[in-house]
Design a protein around this nucleic acid. Structure first.
Lengths: 226, 226
DNA sequence: GATAGTGGATAGCCCTACTATCCAAAACAA
DNA sequence: TTGTTTTGGATAGTAGGGCTATCCACTATC
């Protein structure tokens, strides 16, 4: 196919496709003349993947670049691909705030028996959340500039129900992956299972919450009367 | 306190605080002279909340504005606040792509017995995920321009384990909220429980996945040999 | 032969979230 | 008192992200 069909089927403009080619997100088409090239299904699929990561997965173009570079590296193991996908959905490094809660996170991970690399971005992300929660939910009038002990281990135990629920899901995801022989399917499952399922889980939680609010209003249960 | 102390304790520059005031994210300080004003703990807490929503929650300034407008509206019910928080973490409206999967989502919600408002942004977000998954994981060479039946109900049943795990969590979150009398605590719990816990859940899932990968490599289980 | 489409390159655009500068008027320090 | 710092308020500018528009010399198609 040529540019017109590619852009029509992918739902993007040719200017965008050309830009993606220039920044290395997709390979050039096969040249057939000085100003002609043909594209195949792989180009189409790649663009759809990029759009899904950008629009549904809310990644930045830079994050997509790094993730696809990992996808295209045949030397990487499934765990490496997963690490790249995890890095892609983590907040950009440089935010050093919240690192004072890292010891709390590490204690928590140790208590759960999870072995996590020290440079795992999710570790710092979780620390940032706990740090923010500690700063915001401290004693009613939070006085001191940087409350050091407020981010105690007592705030981490509120993660338990979530970790309990997520752990078996994660195990099932990892053990249910395709065999290493089907590398293309395996890699794509890891990427989509990380980036898109993250959004699906977020949406499902919101839907479950909305339904729970609905139920709590309709069935007073004890606080409200008819 | 005056500007200097406020910015030192909040960790932002005075230019940023002035900008937040101008766009209505925080109220002006109480004027004591033509070019003097005093701020109190509420200002400080508000700035910390804004920074948490922006940096940890990854909201845009516009999303924070709309969410805080709901927070400041005493006429809104807890469900209304939750709806505002849900809207804040949803992808901006205007993305109409993925709407062809809305019937699948609606079927799924009906099957689960969840009652969801038709304009719920999470509903469209979930449809966008399913649509993207359907487009990307169709038959090996996806041929047609817009595969209409590929996004079948068969793809939705893979949500079941996640929905099963999230539903009791959501119920516990909603029923465990503070009473309506403590409006400030209630509203803040809803906002933080929605926006920040979303990030915490994402981080926990990545950590659980990393740990599961670690375990699957160390304990071959059947596919790999020592 | 007329019309539309193409590859490649460069420049420009819009948006977001600040940041820098300016000013006259306090505030504090010696 | 005098010098230095800080402040409120306003306006203009900036850096980065993600495209978009335009141009040109070709090809393709009718």
């Amino acid at each position: 196919m040529r540019m017109g069909e590619l852009t029509r089927r992918a739902g993007v403009t040719s200017a965008t496709v050309k830009w993606y080619i220039r920044i290395g997100l997709i390979p050039r088409g096969e040249s057939t003349a000085r100003n002609q090239a043909v594209y195949d299904e792989r180009h189409l699929h790649r663009i759809r993947l990029i759009r899904a990561l950008l629009e549904v997965g809310r990644l930045s173009v830079e994050q997509v670049q790094q993730l696809l570079a990992a996808v295209d590296d045949p030397a990487l193991s499934p765990a490496d691909i997963a690490a790249a996908a995890h890095a892609a959905i983590s907040r950009p490094t440089g935010h050093a705030d919240g690192d004072e809660a890292l010891p709390v996170v590490d204690d928590y991970l140790r208590a759960r028996g999870w072995s996590i690399a020290p440079d795992s971005p999710a570790r710092r992300d979780l620390a940032a959340v706990l740090s923010a929660l500690g700063r915001l939910t401290g004693p009613v009038g939070n006085d001191v500039a940087a409350p050091p002990a407020a981010t105690g281990a007592d705030i981490a135990h509120l993660l338990d129900p979530y970790a309990d629920a997520l752990e078996p899901l994660a195990v099932a995801e990892v053990t249910g992956l395709p065999p290493r022989e089907q590398r293309a399917e395996l890699v794509e499952r890891i990427v989509l299972g990380t980036v898109l399922m993250d959004q699906a889980i977020s949406a499902l939680r919101r839907l479950a919450q909305e339904s729970a609010f609905h139920a709590s209003v309709d069935l007073p249960a004890g606080r409200r009367e008819p």
